[in-house]
Design a protein around this nucleic acid. Structure first.
Lengths: 63, 63
DNA sequence: ACATTTTGTCAAGTATATTTTACAAATTTT
DNA sequence: AAAATTTGTAAAATATACTTGACAAAATGT
């Protein structure tokens, strides 16, 4: 299922998928796939995303 | 660095690495590697571990 | 309306998470 | 102290996260 919390947190910072990808050091497609859902990123990437968006793991990746 | 929060939470439930591995459906070595640190598990595995130990992502995998 | 940026998606390749088998060190049990 | 369980670790194989390049649809800006 889509990760709308991530999409929303990214929008709150006014960042494009490509900009967020650059901040955390992955490709744009990876960010897109995570938001799209049915994807299983590594915890280090999740942590990097959380820090870039000033959120915690529970806020963005806990159901 | 070692994940002592995970090690401690597992001990609190009196589970061996092998028992926890069975609960979350991975090998014992994977659990051992995560506790040892310098490892990068997937978010789905982290979530499964958290649920098995009645903890959240922030409690076990946030620094 | 046109131009630009952003997003969704696909296929083929590369990097790495995870498994399997195996053995020794350490810890716990009797 | 011996036996049994648990843990630490390693090498080779497999599964999958992530990349690169590319193109079209959708959204945004002028």
């Amino acid at each position: 299922m889509k990760n709308l919390k991530l999409k929303s947190a990214r929008a709150a910072k006014d960042l494009s998928q490509e900009q967020l990808a650059g901040l955390v050091g992955v490709s744009r497609q990876t960010i897109n796939a995570i938001e799209k859902g049915d994807y299983n990123p590594t915890i280090n990437l999740c942590i990097a995303i959380c820090k870039a968006l000033d959120r915690t793991l529970d806020e963005l990746f806990w159901e």
